[in-house]
């Protein structure tokens, strides 16, 4: 039995040890915003925030998250009230198919919290663990840059 908090809600569930945190969030809790693109740790689509740090939810078992606080894309803004980062993604067309987007956002949140992101190079470096096949990254960089410049948090 594990107990953990996801986006402020406490869940208790019986899980098989081999269940990945990604599959747990998606299929046990129905939080399908977190995507799975490789299960090899490379694409970053599955990125969530665990105890304040962005991590790959495909490289973490749900049992390891017992007692943890998790934030997923569903915990950012809502459809009617997008977070500043989400809004900036929309304004700058930083998503096309939207599959990498939850991972990009969660990585972006962690980067904005931890780094000054003074240059675009820094942003690109920070995003290098998140593959996007659609956007060529340019608008993603721009969207994050705009949030840095606005200085009003993630």
């Amino acid at each position: 039995m594990i107990k953990l908090t996801v986006n402020g809600i406490v869940y208790e569930r019986e899980v098989e040890p081999r269940l990945s945190l990604a599959d747990f969030l998606r299929h046990e809790l129905g939080l399908t915003g977190t995507h799975v693109g490789c299960e090899q740790g490379v694409c970053g689509a599955c990125t969530v925030i665990l105890n304040g740090d962005s991590v790959r939810s495909c490289l973490c078992f749900a049992v390891q998250a017992d007692g943890a606080e998790i934030e997923t894309v569903e915990g950012l803004g809502s459809i009617d009230n997008l977070s500043p980062l989400q809004k900036s993604f929309q304004e700058h067309h930083a998503l096309q198919c939207g599959f990498c987007t939850p991972g990009m956002l969660m990585t972006g949140v962690d980067l904005l919290r931890k780094y000054p992101l003074a240059t675009d190079e820094e942003i690109r470096e920070g995003l290098s663990g998140n593959l996007c096949r659609c956007t060529g990254y340019q608008h993603v960089v721009r969207a994050i840059r705009a949030v840095v410049e606005a200085g009003n948090g993630d």
Partner: peptide
């Protein structure tokens, strides 16, 4: 399309 994709409400 964006609001649903940005909030995890896309349906893949």
């Amino acid at each position: 399309e964006d609001p649903r994709m940005l909030t995890g409400h896309g349906r893949f």
